[in-house]
Design a protein around this nucleic acid. Structure first.
Ligand SMILES: [Mn+2]
Ligand SMILES: [Mn+2]
Ligand SMILES: [Zn+2]
Ligand SMILES: [Zn+2]
Lengths: 146, 146
DNA sequence: CAACAAATTGGAATGATTCTAAGGTGCAAG
DNA sequence: CTTGCACCTTAGAATCATTCCAATTTGTTG
């Protein structure tokens, strides 16, 4: 079997986006981002830490928090909150909503037509200027949609 | 001037709703509820505590948390969360969205047509059954809408 | 290489909320 | 009435995600 160095699994955009913000590309940042792209189940910082540790045993939880914040700042990842629970991280940059399954605790992405987001903003009373809308569903999902 | 005992400023529903759940009406619960009805600015537990203390100096913060949770359980009040900030409390039972002013930090109610909430639920992919939708706007509000 | 800035690290500190154990309160039998 | 008992309140300790800090480490530049 071959042994070439593993290719990065993330759009080379990372290094560029970081540079755009005057930040460096580091092994920790790349790995954290890879982990988010590879399993898009909206992991918490602790979960990211657990997934990243085997590949980079020396990494600290503080660094995971730092990397996640950096990725959010660079608009490569979104922070998702639900009722006081720990913050979860989502690499899906399309405008979308989140569905929290009350049974499994899982968080699913729900793509919605952009027109709906526009419609919502248009319903705001005069004087209110929104630059972001967040939509969260809570309920049960048929045991499919893993 | 007259000195009759102050009438309760809240729909007498409180005692009833509490009884429905097998709970008692207490001075603490009534006062916490009154405070929420009287200034609907989505106060945090600490803020409720501060408003309630002058009227009932012996009340504890733990009790304020207990009362708030009780009111939420009885569907008299809604808990509102925004990005890891402390939970805020809202006595507006109509279906509505929240607008967070990035400048002032204030939280405003935004009434939306029920049809919109329905529309949103109808956009869910098959297999997803939502029993609640939450909509949050973030932006700037014209310095009116106090 | 030397100097300096950017990044990482382990551990302490924070802050909202929850938990615990110890009194109160008030109706319901007896 | 008293007592029993379930419900409530209270102060303070405990939780737990996240942030802060001070001390290295790493990377880049001259
Ligand atoms: Mn987390
Ligand atoms: Mn609070
Ligand atoms: Zn998502
Ligand atoms: Zn509200």
């Amino acid at each position: 079997m071959t042994t070439a160095t593993q290719p990065p699994r993330h759009p080379a955009g990372l290094a560029q986006k970081l540079a755009d913000s005057g930040l460096r590309s580091t092994p920790q940042r790349e790995l954290v981002y890879d982990v988010l792209l590879n399993k898009r189940d909206h992991p918490t910082a602790d979960e990211v830490f657990a997934r990243v540790k085997p590949e980079l045993p020396g990494i600290s939880l503080a660094t995971v928090y730092n990397c996640l914040e950096t990725l959010v700042q660079c608009d490569l990842v979104r922070a998702v909150n639900f009722e006081r629970g720990p913050t979860r991280y989502c690499p899906n940059l399309r405008p979308h909503a989140h569905f929290h399954d009350e049974v499994t605790g899982q968080t699913h992405d729900v793509d919605l037509p952009e027109t709906l987001f526009a419609k919502l903003k248009s319903e705001l009373p005069p004087g209110f200027d929104a630059n972001a809308v967040e939509i969260t569903f809570r309920g049960k999902a048929k045991s499919s949609a893993n």
